[in-house]
Amino acid sequence: MSDFINWGALTSVVVVGLVAGAGLPALYALGVRALAGPGSRNGVGRLSPVRVTAAVAFLAIVLSAIVFAIMLIIDSRA
């Protein structure tokens, strides 16, 4: 069996798939939660700066991952 499955490559695919494929949606979800989750707005309906910063940080990570993915796609021609 080990001849038929390239275990090294498969493991890399699973690990990267999990980190990016599950991690990025989770970060995005945390960003959404920071902006709109319970307790996100105070008595006068304002967002706390901490939450805004957190959301921006999470979304920035997600956006940079997208940029990285596009670079990977372009780079795959080589």
Binding site: L10, V13, G17, L24
Partner: peptide, 21 residues
Amino acid sequence: MAAETSSAAVILASSHFGYSL
């Protein structure tokens, strides 16, 4: 969103590591 991101990640990882799925 979760499904599509997972697709994108697995597809890109598989073509990057040369294990084409």
